[in-house]
């Protein structure tokens, strides 16, 4: 109990420290690496809360892939953040006010791990009771994710798919037109190009005929 408390305080303090450093530094490479560290610390906090599935996702997606993708994107933006000149007092007041309101709202939340909390009263008992005995799947997180709320997860998968398509249309589309341009510049010296073009156009005409 005591050890858990000490670990919690240490991790949360680390989280605040990293957040402050992210705000203070202007170098974007450092920001990316530190947001990876932020995710990893959050993952450690989730492990401490016994939410291993969430921790796993946070470590893999937040600390792993996001960092790599950000670094890949970094290659074509400036390495330093633009220094902002305006110190807006009103914005600061609104931020602090909103933060104070959120802290005030936290007072009304049920305490951590409270068995009588509303979230543990609705459908959760049924999931916990059924998952192992009736469905024979011990990991309740998986049954909730894939079975009880399978429709949600279908939506999530489609969101991932759509996001990927969106980025591909924005970036890969740009590269493709550029490649065609460079190919034209180099003239039709490469015989492979017309070869690959012919069957395509042939199928296209076949399709339009059909």
């Amino acid at each position: 109990m005591m050890v858990g408390l000490v670990i919690d305080i240490f991790l949360l303090a680390l989280l605040v420290l990293i957040a402050v450093m992210v705000v203070r530094t202007g170098r974007l490479y450092a920001v990316i690496v530190m947001s990876g560290a932020y995710s990893l610390t959050s993952a450690a906090i989730f492990v401490n809360l016994d939410a291993v599935d969430v921790a796993f996702t946070e470590a893999a997606v937040g600390a792993g892939i996001s960092t790599v993708l950000f670094l890949a994107a970094m290659a074509y933006i400036p390495a330093d953040e633009k220094p902002s000149q305006n110190r807006n007092l009103l914005a600061g007041v609104i931020c602090i006010g909103a933060g104070a309101l959120l802290l005030f709202a936290v007072m009304d939340l049920p305490s951590l791990g409270d068995a009588m909390a509303p979230v543990h009263q609705h459908v959760a008992p049924r999931y916990l009771a059924e998952s192992g005995s009736a469905l024979h799947i011990p990991n309740v997180v998986t049954t909730v994710l894939a079975s009880y709320r399978g429709f949600d997860t279908l939506g999530e998968t489609i969101v991932v798919f759509t996001a990927g398509l969106g980025v591909l249309m924005l970036l890969a589309g740009a590269t493709r037109t550029k490649r065609v341009k460079t190919d034209n510049r180099k003239v039709a010296a490469k015989t492979a190009k017309p070869k690959t073009n012919k069957p395509k156009s042939a199928t296209k005409t076949a399709r339009t005929k059909a």
Binding site: A75, Y76, A146, T153, G164, V167, L168, L171, T175
Partner: peptide, 25 residues
Amino acid sequence: VVEFGVGLTVTSVMLALFHAFAGFV
């Protein structure tokens, strides 16, 4: 089967994103 579908989509989307970003550069 459903999780396999999720895994396939996530793998390929992540890979496509990486190649889109890195290839663009």
